[in-house]
Simulated scan of single mutants.
Amino acid sequence: MKNPFVLINIFTVTPDDQRRLIDLLTKATGETIKHMDGFITSTLHRSIDGTKVTMYAQWESREKYEAMRRNATASPYLEEALSFAKFEMGAYEVVEIFKKA
């Protein structure tokens, strides 16, 4: 398999909305996104200060990720998140993987 297409999405929220966003992203990923063609894995992170939620996700290709974004089943979750969170998407290619020997 070629190197995956990687997304590091950073959401900025108020501390009062951090749990709400985590619940929404958990639901979106668990019920819909992880079942879509090309999905490999994702990891959800929360900042200690309560102002950020970050999701690291891997897809088989950019094309398969973009197909998911066009899917009507997935888009309402992002629309809801954007109603109370600021979103910064970062798209990356894996250059090197380091593992403990």
Score class of each variant (00 low, 15 high):
F84V: 01
T73F: 06
P4T: 12
F5A: 03
F39A: 01
Q18I: 04
F39S: 07
F98R: 11
T32H: 02
Q18M: 14
K64I: 01
R70F: 05
M68A: 15
G90W: 03
G30F: 09
F5N: 02
M89C: 00
K2Q: 12
K99L: 11
M36L: 15
A67T: 04
E31F: 09
L25N: 03
E96P: 04
Y56H: 12
D23T: 05
P76L: 12
I22R: 02
L24I: 04
T41F: 10
L44P: 08
S75Q: 01
V53Y: 10
F87L: 14
I48M: 13
V94C: 12
Y56I: 04
F98Q: 07
A101K: 14
M68S: 10
I22P: 01
L25I: 01
N3E: 13
L7R: 06
F87E: 02
A91T: 13
Y56W: 12
T43P: 03
L21W: 05
E88F: 04
E96S: 11
H35N: 15
I22S: 08
S83H: 07
E79P: 02
I97E: 14
Y92V: 09
M1V: 06
E79Y: 01
P15D: 07
R69G: 03
F87K: 00
D49T: 03
I10K: 08
K2W: 00
A91C: 02
F98T: 00
L78S: 03
K99E: 13
K100N: 13
K34Y: 09
I8G: 01
A28D: 00
E60D: 10
R70E: 15
D23F: 02
E66Q: 09
G38N: 06
I40W: 09
S75Y: 06
T29C: 08
Q18W: 05
A72D: 09
A74H: 12
V95G: 01
S75M: 09
E31H: 11
E93G: 11
E79K: 05
R19Q: 14
G90Q: 15
Y56V: 06
T43F: 05
E31M: 14
A67D: 06
S47G: 14
M55R: 06
E66A: 11
S75N: 08
G50A: 12
A72T: 10
E31D: 14
K64T: 05
I22C: 15
T43Q: 13
T14C: 02
K27Y: 08
L78Q: 03
L82Y: 03
T29Y: 07
G50F: 04
A67C: 04
I33S: 02
T29Q: 06
N71C: 10
Y77G: 03
E66L: 13
M89S: 11
K86F: 09
A74C: 14
T73K: 13
A74M: 09
V95F: 10
G30Q: 13
E79C: 08
T43I: 03
